[in-house]
Simulated scan of single mutants.
Amino acid sequence: MTMLRAALILGLLSAVGPFAIDMYLPAMPAIAASLGAEVSAVQLTLTAYFVAFGLAQLFYGPWADQVGRKLPLFVGLAIFAAATVACALAGSIEQLIAARALQGLGGAVLMVVPRAVIRDMHTGPAATKLMAMVMLVISVSPMLAPLAGAGLIAFGDWRLIFWVLGAVALLSLMLTATALPETLPSESRVAVNLANLWRGTKVLLRDPVFMGLTFIGGFGFASFMVFISSASFVYTGEFGLTPTGFSLAFAINAIGFFGASQAAGPLADKIGIMTVIRWAVVGFAGCSAVLFAVALSGYGTLPVVMAGLFLGNACLGLVIPTTMVMALDPHGAIAGLASSLGGTFQMVTGGLMVVVTGLFFDGTAVPMIGAIMLCAFCALVLALRTLAVMHRVSTNAVQG
């Protein structure tokens, strides 16, 4: 299989999960009206998805190492497809929340296994190149998925979005069956050893640098989750945008994130990865604080909010990938476990922040921006402490 074909297949599979998040964002106000639900309850459909998505990653990684890559993909996609049908048929907000949690349990396989396939196929620069190509495919989803969802709403109600997602899941099953080879040979498979998993977990939990970097990225990711859970209500309610208008505004913010993320590597080479993290977190906190002050004073117009969020998300595009790289760097022997554990912590952190935001959210921009600012300052405090520890360790190593 050529690298381009592999990137397209793995990218399309990996994009199913983000589409399940972003495609129904324009429909969230319609879901609230249709099911007679509070805004905070509709936001819980995102929280349920993210928490289940994060926790399930801990299961799929070891299982894929034991039985190969394709069986977990089949099972996860089947769960995702069934849950998507349940979402389309949900008669109450409670049923929709439960179905979204089940959808997250299935969709998590599409985060874990494609990365493992890349490691099976390539190492070193070739693996980096393939991962970059896959990420390029995935990065299109935050821009296209809301627009696709808005387009579907024009032809039907919000349930049509989930019927289309179900069809996409079935197509992904066919793609996995016919176009994706098994990349982990039998002789390379390893049995799940709970003792080794617990030993590695204890190493990670006791590492202040790993935990610090993980939660710096986690609070950064949480701010983005707060944004996606609230933005459709703010943009359509307070600012009067149509679902299509919201989708375009959302795409602009996504461009800020993914555009800046492409500069993270070159900047790290030029000025050092620790410097990138430090100034990106400071920029994120500064942009969030200024935007909150402006919104609180009554000048938070749509262009001002969009510009402030664009700048903040651009800083996030430098924070999240660099902290992920640095967190895994000292733990090469247990990189898979570290990746799964870190992903779980970040997803759960984001889900909890959405719940906290829901307690104060009133459909306007101020509480949304305030929650984003809270995430930013949590990340800033952690960054100052963690980078100080990293500097001290580095200095001791040089002196030693």
Rank of each mutant, 00 (worst) to 15 (best):
M3R: 14
R5G: 10
L8R: 02
L8W: 14
G11F: 10
G11M: 09
V16F: 15
V16A: 14
G17T: 13
A20V: 10
M23A: 14
Y24C: 03
P26V: 12
G36E: 10
V39E: 13
T47I: 14
V51L: 12
Y60T: 09
G76W: 10
A78E: 00
C87W: 06
A88P: 04
A88D: 06
Q95D: 13
A101N: 04
Q103M: 08
L105A: 12
A108L: 04
V112Q: 02
R119Y: 13
D120L: 00
M121Y: 12
G124L: 03
A127M: 00
L130M: 10
V140T: 12
M143F: 05
A145P: 11
G149Y: 11
G149F: 10
G151I: 05
R159H: 07
L160P: 07
V164N: 06
L171S: 10
M174L: 15
T178L: 14
L180S: 03
L180A: 03
P181A: 05
T183H: 09
L184S: 09
S186P: 08
S188N: 15
L197C: 02
L197S: 00
M211Q: 13
I228C: 07
A231C: 03
Y235M: 15
G237H: 05
G240V: 01
G240E: 04
T244E: 14
G245L: 08
G245S: 09
G245R: 07
A249H: 02
F250M: 03
A251N: 03
A251G: 12
I255R: 01
A263M: 15
A263Y: 12
A268P: 07
D269K: 14
G272K: 03
G272P: 03
T275N: 14
V276C: 05
R278T: 01
V281P: 06
A285Q: 06
C287F: 15
S288N: 13
V290H: 07
F292K: 06
A293C: 08
A295H: 05
V304H: 11
V304S: 11
V305L: 14
M306P: 02
G308C: 04
L309H: 05
L311Y: 08
I320P: 01
M324P: 02
P330V: 09
I334R: 13
A335C: 09
A338C: 07
L341K: 00
T344E: 04
V348G: 03
V348S: 04
T349G: 09
L352Q: 09
V355R: 12
V356C: 12
F361L: 00
D362S: 11
G363D: 03
T364D: 01
A365R: 07
P367Q: 08
A376G: 07
F377T: 04
A379I: 02
A388E: 07
N396T: 10
A397Q: 13
A397F: 09
